[in-house]
Amino acid sequence: MVSPLAEALLRYTERQGGESLFSTPIDGLAIMRSDHPKPASHLLLRPAVCLVAQGAKWGSFGGNRLEYRAGQALVIGVETPSIGKVFEARPGEPCLVLMFELDFAIMRSVAEDLPTPPIPSGQAGLGVFVSNFDGPLADCALRLVRLLDTPQAIPALHPGIIREICYWLLTGPHGGEIARLALRTSPSQHVIEAMHSLRGRFRETVRIEDLAAIAHMSPSAFHRHFKALTASTPLQYQKQLRLLEARRLMVSCGLNVEAAAFEVGYESPSQFSREYARMFGAPPKRDLTRLRSTLEAYDDGQALAAA
């Protein structure tokens, strides 16, 4: 039986035509439709909710692979590199995913209005998890999609729905995890602040001691918390950011291998090529040929742009 949310997403995507990632009149809201399973793709994910209405996907973060199916959502609380794949989709029954950004400023505002705000989970853990998205949360998601039929109502109604989603996330079974990632009283917030600094300076040589100082932690404690949150060390995280950006520059901007390597902070093109091959499974030139062929076959250019 097709859910009301899947029906609404089918109607919207069929009006647009084609398949892939559809932007919408609502800022930060997108819809993904895949009529066939797709190859795994490397992405840089920002804080967001990825709700599956039909079909199934998986995402890999470090060595952690998370599957999510219809009625479930991948909740992303930190900006993190990942590998994602649609593995359950077919013509007539496509994989349909509603994606909307999480605004932690709104989340904190909602938390302040709660009579009993959730207590941040004390245990350091991955900043990404899978949650059931049913009941009031599913109703909110459906109302978001239905708003697309009345664009003039979006400015008035969209903010209230987003605040309601934040409320149900904070008061739901994963409220402690959401609070750990969103609230300024959480130790994870200090690590996230340092992560933002690393994100803005990923082309530079960055000392762990400097990042640890931003997080108000010792280098060893910072390293431990960072790895728990992202499933990678700070240096591995920086390397992934560099390689994802270099790949984007070569595909979208036409830079050659050497120019892309220097642009993202590598001094040695040969080292760049070796690390690129370890991450993407092939040297840059061979990977770009394969990637362009894949993009033409699957019209997945928007996914690359997100990376």
Rank of each mutant, 00 (worst) to 15 (best):
L142T: 03
T116R: 13
K239G: 09
M1F: 08
T205D: 15
K285I: 02
R146N: 13
L243T: 02
E267I: 07
V86I: 10
S197Y: 15
I76G: 13
L126Y: 01
K57Q: 04
T150F: 10
M217G: 03
V2Y: 09
T230G: 08
M217Y: 08
T233R: 06
A56R: 02
G55N: 03
R247I: 03
E258V: 14
I31E: 03
A30T: 14
E67N: 06
V86R: 04
A53L: 02
I119Y: 09
V206C: 07
L96K: 05
R247T: 12
P39F: 05
P151E: 13
T24S: 13
R143V: 04
H36R: 12
M217E: 08
Q302M: 13
S232T: 14
I119T: 15
E67F: 03
P91Q: 10
L29P: 12
A6E: 03
E88Y: 06
F87D: 06
R278M: 13
P283V: 01
F202K: 06
I178K: 11
A305E: 11
A124Y: 10
V52E: 01
L66T: 00
R201I: 00
A124R: 14
P219V: 05
P39N: 01
R278D: 11
L147Y: 08
V86E: 01
R69Y: 01
P173M: 04
E263G: 00
V206G: 05
T13E: 04
R33Y: 06
K227W: 11
H174I: 09
L147K: 12
A246V: 01
